[in-house]
Design a protein around this nucleic acid. Sequence first.
RNA 1: GCCCGCCUGGCGGAAUGGUAGACGCAGCGGACUUAAAAUCCGCAGCCCUUCGGGCGUACCGGUUCGAGUCCGGUGGUGGGCACCA
Length: 886
Amino acid sequence: MTPPPADVPARPDTAAAQDAPRYDFRAAEPKWQAAWDARRCFQVPDVPQDGRPKYYVLEMFPYPSGKIHMGHVRNYTLGDVVARYKRARGMAVLHPMGWDAFGLPAENAARERGIHPAKWTWDNIAAMRAELQRMGLSLDWTREFATCDPAYYGQQQKLFLDMLAAGLVERRESWVNWDPVDGTVLANEQVIDGRGWRSGALVEKKQLSQWFLKITQAAPDLLSALDGLDRWPDRVRTMQANWIGRSEGARLAFALTAAEGGIDSVEVYTTRPDTLFGMSFLAIAPEHPLAALVAARDAAAADFVAVCRSKGTSEAVIETGEKLGYDTGLFVQHPFDATQRFPVWIANFVLMEYGTGAIFGCPGHDQRDLDFARKYGLPVVPVVLPPGEDATRFAIGTRAHDGAGRMINSGFLDGMEPEAAKSAAIAELARLGAGEGVVNWRLRDWGVSRQRYWGCPIPVIHCDACGVVPVPRADLPLKLPEDVTFDRPGNPLDHHPSWKHVNCPSCGAAARRETDTFDTFVDSSWYFARFCSPHAAGPVDRAAVDHWLPVDQYIGGIEHAILHLLYSRFFTRAMRATGHLSVDEPFAGLFTQGMVTHESYRGADGRWLYPEEVTRAADGAASHVTTGEAVTVGRVEAMSKSKRNTVDPGAIIARFGADTARWFILSDNPPERDMEWTESGVAGAYKFTQRVFRLAEGLAEGLAETPDFAAMPAEFGPEARALRRATHRAIAAVTEALDGFAFNVAVARVYEFANAIGDAERAAATGSAGLDWARLEALRMLALLVAPMMPHLAEEVFARLGGSGLVAEQSWPVADPALTAAETVTIAMQVMGKLRGTVEMPPDSDAAAVIAAAEAEPNVVRALEGRRIVKRVHVPNRIVNFVVAG
RNA sequence: GCCCGCCUGGCGGAAUGGUAGACGCAGCGGACUUAAAAUCCGCAGCCCUUCGGGCGUACCGGUUCGAGUCCGGUGGUGGGCACCA
């Protein structure tokens, strides 16, 4: 075990400090967790009858990697604060937890270490569950499930068959990243610089027949319903809207001057039909059917297509790579002027998945087209003249002009603005029968087939006579075979000796099971619904989902802003269409948290070092704890295993306690921002847990007997009144902060409150009337206010102050407005917006009184000297501002 | 490349268009202690010589009596880009 860094206090359990009473979290945390458990504080029925309003809090469930990381601690702490707070506010809170348990890492572990994916996964779940339970989360563990359990994925298979029957599923060809050496499909993240991560082989695109969920059918609804998601962050809604990508444009056909293998025209989608007269070439995707025809007779074209194919399927790679083209020698005619001909190029930046897989190139007004035209010496004709430019001299340089202006060089469109020209061009295309105005969507159908073992089997059978036949429902769940090996490349399901060989349920002839499994995004697209009735015989219990859905507050990482959330929104619609639930949106409220970051460290030899291997001297110099060699402190960045800048939550909780970890993670900064984990921050949070405990002990020990909380004194002295004002202001402020997800502000208000209690403790010797009672009130309220954040400490303090029952079962306190009112307000006095002083006034003083007070202030008088007051601005209880002339 | 964020003292951050820097961390000074740790109290944006004044929320510009906050642009930095979860 490595010694603690120099700036962290000695281990609390061995620290000297015999004089100060110490909060023993090691005893308290398990004790209160057991107490909550015994009282089943956090369990709710599938269909409650007690009339409390429902509140469903959900954090994105974890992938069971084996250990929780700080991102989990942050996510589940945020959710737990909400759950505990809403429960205290009188709501029936559903707060479940489970495991997103299928996925690639389990197969990687199997290949690398020979562990079966199931054993690896279930062992990881057991370890992570224990860690989560030590955090003291208010979870209903009776609802726990893992997606790799047939009890879950069998229900998912039923949902799929329902969607198949409802016409929401389709089988078709699509392109995948193929590793020819490993004989396997690669995820984009497994393609590194165009090569397979394990084999190093050049990756190629390959076409496979795959299952698709028809999410594009829902595109208009998925887009328009975003408006109603008013408790989602705007940026997530914007990102989804852009992803769905509705655009208005034109679809038009360009006739080839000579037909190629039966193809006599190329269809193009464009959002800029107004710029058709600026065309200088036509470009098709390397996967376009016409490209294949050309490649069949032209070896150089075939080579070019093969090079493009080696780039993989990632859009980021395609769009950032060098723009390359191949001139096919073919020509198309301009739809408005058949005498004009343009070359047809195959271009690597044209995406087959978007529009029609072909574009017309207008270099003057599209940057990508311009880059391409400059590279290959194609003409650049400006057709939109920017305002203030001279048509006879305007030319495009290295920047395409995509802004406003008037049409030039454009025949019948000349003089129009682009918007009008779009309509006119579309009308003309329609008149000529060459094209039409269309709405296009960027969103593509959701390919759910994966050539992997550790996923939910797709429940269909392929029969030569009958085609695709669903697995009979009586045979569900269709379980994964357990006797699989990972000693050779490819999908173990595919080369299992017997699993895929079945008889056709329809005709009885020999047939083959589908050996693909579902994308793990399918598993996570309906788990929130299953949590409502995790033991139901069907996918969901209708009464349970009707009661609990939608999720009132969903919390997770911003990295899921698009795919997971969009797929879940689609799945909810598909489940409604197939009669499983009634809501149309799964998540009424969404909160996206930032990442947890840490400094990174490198030793003299360039190796990354773990934080516990590094110690910092007083001057900030870093060195290795054992060798003493100098350490380079690197950037603060997201915790990752490769940079070794991770901090193990298990170690933190063992050393400082769960409440300390929770408190620090909440206090550091606003939850939507990235937070930096620092050792001094944890130490500070730990000190505060002790301070709260000491404040409570200070009252309990300083008095012969604890005041009777039920008997409020008739009279309070000035100190007691001040404390009571602080107490009720803290209640109001913490409540407001929690409602607004401003947990760091809630923490700050608690600190202020604790400072006020400390002041009262020192004043206690004066014997101020009612002060002991006010201190008891303050400390009990403090316990209630910190309870969502530090639940164990809250219970301990509350119990020591004579509270009966559990804090977890107490109602949230309510501030008394009579006690929170201010006696005076501070009004800022400005001259021309510059602060010249402040004045104390009774609240809601009228303008004349405030202005008179300001004009009597020497500093203001000095600033006004020799100037004429033009205007006096008065904002009640805030400021007075003199506008002067001269 | 495209889409979306973020940028305030040494650090994390606070601030319905109305006193910028609450609160915490680190720091400095003091109390307590034989001493240290722990604890408690106080100070603290930068600059000018003080009463007082100037500057200051990445940078440039705009709207406003008044801008960290609203608008336009620039720079830096982070997330996503469809088979990682």
